[in-house]
Nucleic acid binder design. Structure first.
Lengths: 235, 235
DNA sequence: ACCTCTATTATGTATAGACATATTATGCAT
DNA sequence: ATGCATAATATGTCTATACATAATAGAGGT
């Protein structure tokens, strides 16, 4: 275990056992460096990670304080659907439902500013059962290749992620009651709960794509795990 | 703008514009340091952040490659309910529904290994309307103070976050159809969709608390935003 | 061809020192 | 006291260097 890891763990302990309670000030870098017998840069490195995790707050001259925890943060990872299905041990299936130019039923907010659009609907299956309904708009002004691409074998999800660059993503998670389309394709009763992920992808100022991914609520969940203290090794 | 920020932005550009396409190898650190006219440490600093964001993969001797993007990662922040409500401009309300020892209706999986439990139900309101139903188990072996704490004014959510240390959190997001309890307290029709956040909090090996937070699906969503390219300043 | 040992190499960790900068604390003048 | 300029200070950035380490590439022997 490296010096900065030991120090980070030690500091984590002191925070979680309230040796350094929330709101209190830490000794400054040079003092800690002396205490731990390392260079200032090594202490900084340990502290930076704790700042990233939101456990410490630092300000020039004012020093370092233990942050008041008033939120839970974690990293949300949403893999490509195919991986999500295969990683669960199930067999992945895919079928294109429709692909036509010009549609904008999803484009309620006018994100695309009149650009030519491609509207794609497709279904992702897990062991033959409907897993996700993907309803997507692609901006042909940004991604002209999409118009001639055949999406009957590869899903737009995967194709876009691999081929098309983007610089900003906005993800929205919500629950809904299944509408006619969702209930038909996902083979669930109307008005039964659906977990929806909406994602808006931009390249600089331009919208690249807008997608709604609907999952039957039964059996679907998103899980995130955060560990602050490093896994205690058996020595 | 600092040197490491400029370099990070430049590298981000090269990745998103596919000057360095996914899978390709980057020049090694010393070459880049020379190209940008900085020390190796400064290049490292820029690269580390890109590695954290999952855009680069590095391996000793093998070098640095642009990672294949096969997932969307973002940071999920779930604030204390009260803040969530007040930040939206609404008035926050709270009412304790029940608090009694020994219950374990939530403890389906036997997480708490027979420890003495406190079971609390409460409701969080936004502008007088039900916003979240909180259904919580607290491990009294870890948090004995909870037994004598009065939760009629302060919610267990807030109290625990501030008072009790923890080292690991597992969060699950799902959609459900409202059961009798949810529909009654959230004032929605039975079987209408509910957005549920379940959180399991541990301190080392011990369960601290297990909570189910149910929101009426209508009007509730979780939003995350990720920006890879730094905001372009007007100069 | 195949295995093994060795050298090479790019990244990883750590140090020490210099300087920059935001922010607080101090002291002076009013 | 009050306001303002100034000094002090903890964090932030950057450099230069040394050595550690993992993983590959290459040499050599079988």
């Amino acid at each position: 275990m490296h010096a900065y890891e030991k120090i980070r763990t030690e500091m984590l302990q002191r925070i979680s056992q309230q040796v350094w309670p929330a709101g209190s000030s830490l000794p400054h870098e040079e003092q800690l460096a002396e205490e731990f017998g390392v260079a200032r840069g090594t202490v900084r490195r340990a502290m930076e990670q704790l700042v990233d995790q939101g456990l410490l707050e630092r300000k020039r001259k004012a020093g370092t304080k233990v942050a008041a925890r008033n939120a839970h943060s974690s990293t949300l990872t949403i893999p490509v659907v195919r991986r999500e299905v295969t990683d669960s041990g199930a067999e992945y299936g895919y079928s294109l439902l429709s692909a036509r130019k010009g549609g904008r039923p999803l484009d309620r907010s006018g994100y695309f500013a009149g650009a030519p659009l491609l509207h794609i609907c497709c279904l992702h299956l897990s062991d033959g059962r409907p897993y996700q309904l993907e309803d997507r708009l692609i901006n042909l002004a940004v991604v002209p290749e999409a118009e001639v691409q055949d999406f009957s074998e590869i899903s737009p999800n995967e194709w876009l992620l691999q081929k098309v660059p983007y610089s900003s993503v906005c993800t929205t998670l919500k629950a809904e009651a299944a509408d006619a389309k969702q209930s038909r394709h996902l083979q669930i009763a109307q008005h039964s709960p659906v977990f929806v992920i909406e994602r808006q992808t931009r390249l600089d100022k331009q919208q690249v794509t807008l997608v709604r991914m609907s999952h039957p609520a039964a059996g679907f969940s998103i899980i995130t795990q955060t560990n602050w203290i490093d896994i205690p090794d058996p020595e």
